[in-house]
Design a protein around this nucleic acid. Structure first.
Length: 480
RNA sequence: CGAGGUGUAGCGCAGUUUGGUAGCGCGUUUGGUUCGGGACCAAAAGGUCGCAGGUUCAAAUCCUGUCACCUCGACCA
């Protein structure tokens, strides 16, 4: 009976099959990460989901500060004239901009865009703020939401409004701007690997795939369990593409008036989707400890018996004091078995079972969410043991994800091999650099160029598409 | 945006073909017995049938529009 019910319950919770999409939707809803709202394409992020985002923010913000950036806040509304100043930028974003045309019941003389991204407003302010080489670099970041009128949306992966951070910097020299662009890309890579436990391919985008208005765009690309690519972060070098139309000029040491060199870089709540689709399994979510709002859940066993709840509270207190995010599940309406399943679904990395037998033996029973390994832990020095276990779970999640990524990446030499490879993973291939080949691959296989790794050691000499001489190493995959 | 599918109680569904009193399971509440992997018994509460129009004496059911979700495609930095 109980078994049947369980099978029925997990029926849809199965990644890695043709129902991956349904599995994803089930997870975000059942784990209480978000809910749909009356606003088309805009979701409400619930406490558990937002808690994950807050931890991501903390980790990233600390890295931004450590690399010399400061946070600011810019207006949500951007006058149309500003948006029109950079031609490629307008062309790229115009189709998905929402406009404010009225205020206080009166028609506006100039309509205002709800920001789809803030390059233009940052540029406008930088033009006011930067006068001398002494003012540079200016390295600012903002945490905000942006709005893009997307045609089709999916929770966390692509929503009309989404939370993100956008860093915008201006520099005196091209070299410095390029260094910043790559440094922030590497912050993203390190964050993905060490905090999200997601391995990524880091590299440069093709001209076709680069950001509207950028001279060069770089990205970190993750691989989901269905083999598809998800771009989890981007970093752009604008050169003077924006500083010229926006007149961001400064007087340099040599007395010459020069245009500033600009960068921007961003990551969003989409990373939550990446975490779900990288680590999740048939039981639901699997959270890396570093971003788990609850790292340890304590489930009292036979809680009606004297002393169990008190012991749980005491253990929780000790863990909290050690900086561990812990919660005691003292709900009296659910059985222990129910709670086990519930917290496994929600992806809590570690469960501690505390029952009379444990207490008698001066121990708790620890169960890992990732491996389901069950082991007794002595109460003495428990916080240190838990810290070690959490670190082990974090490490293990990354290694399993890395093994998956490696196992689903292979060299493709021709279109046949490429077709087979992008069906469930990434293809590493030689590319001649022609736009026509990218277009053909997109049209015939539904795959796009993801990025060019920094390590350009050739894996052949002929373009995977046209067969002509090629010297660019490119990753191709189907993408979200 | 194109093709197809779904929308009925918190969740999962039946009822729609052929218009005529709103149903089932799970969950919830209360009481009792349980308690180391989704407990059991009893009683109770809970629904604008996605939303808006229309046809009809009468609409969950027929018609039109619209919104949301799922699948495939298109588009997308």
């Amino acid at each position: 009976m109980a078994k049947e019910k369980q099978q029925e319950f997990v029926q849809h919770l199965t990644p890695r099959d043709e129902d991956f999409s349904q599995w994803y939707t089930d997870v975000v809803l059942k784990c209480d990460l978000m809910d749909y709202t009356p606003v088309r394409g805009c979701m409400a992020i619930k406490p558990y989901g937002y808690g994950i985002w807050e931890l991501m923010q903390q980790e990233m913000d600390a890295r931004f500060k450590a690399t010399g950036h400061k946070n600011v806040s810019m207006p949500m509304l951007i006058p149309e004239s500003l948006l029109l100043k950079e031609a490629d930028h307008v062309e790229g974003f115009a189709p998905e901009v929402a406009w404010v045309t009225q205020g206080g019941g009166e028609e506006l003389t100039e309509r205002l865009a709800i920001r789809p991204t803030s390059e233009t407003i940052f540029c406008t302010m930088y033009a006011k703020w930067a006068q001398s080489w002494r003012d540079l670099p200016m390295k600012y970041n903002q945490w905000c939401s942006v709005l893009r009128w997307e045609k089709s949306t999916r929770p966390f992966l692509r929503t009309a409004e989404f939370l993100w951070q956008e860093g915008h910097t201006i520099h005196a020299t091209p070299e410095e701007a390029q260094q910043e662009t790559l440094a922030m890309l590497d912050v993203y890579r390190e964050f993905c690997e060490n905090v999200l436990a997601i391995p990524v391919y880091s590299g440069q985008k093709s001209d076709k795939e680069k950001f509207a208005g950028a001279r060069a765009t770089y990205s970190v690309e993750a691989m989901m369990q269905d083999g598809k690519a998800l771009q989890t972060g981007t970093s752009h070098n604008f050169g003077t593409n924006f500083s010229e139309p926006f007149q961001i000029q400064f007087l340099d040491k040599d007395g010459a008036l020069k245009y500033a060199h600009e960068t921007s870089w961003g990551t969003s709540t989409r990373m939550i989707g990446a975490v779900i689709m990288t680590h999740g399994d048939e039981r639901g979510l699997k959270l890396p400890p570093r971003i788990a709002p609850i790292q340890v859940v304590i489930v009292p066993i036979a809680a009606h018996k004297g002393g169990v709840l008190e012991a749980c509270a005491e253990i929780a207190g000790g863990l909290k004091a050690a900086g561990i995010r812990v919660e005691v599940d003292d709900r009296d309406t659910y059985s222990a078995g129910y709670k086990f399943n519930d917290w496994e679904m929600k992806g809590v990395p570690l469960r501690l079972e505390v029952g009379p037998r444990d207490l008698e033996a001066r121990q708790v029973t620890a169960v890992r969410r990732d491996s389901f390994e069950k082991a007794p832990l002595a109460l003495d020095g428990l916080p240190q043991r838990i810290q070690a276990l959490l670190a082990e779970v974090q490490r293990s999640l990354y290694e399993i994800a890395l093994a998956f990524q490696q196992a689903h990446t292979a060299v493709a030499r021709d279109m046949r091999e490429l077709a087979a490879q992008v069906n469930g993973g990434y293809a590493k291939a030689m590319w001649c650099g022609e736009r026509a080949c990218e277009d053909a691959i997109k049209e015939q296989l539904g795959a796009t160029s993801r990025n060019m790794p920094f390590d350009q050691t050739p894996v052949g000499d002929a373009c995977v598409c046209c067969g002509k001489k090629a010297d660019i190493v490119m990753y191709f995959a189907k993408a979200y």
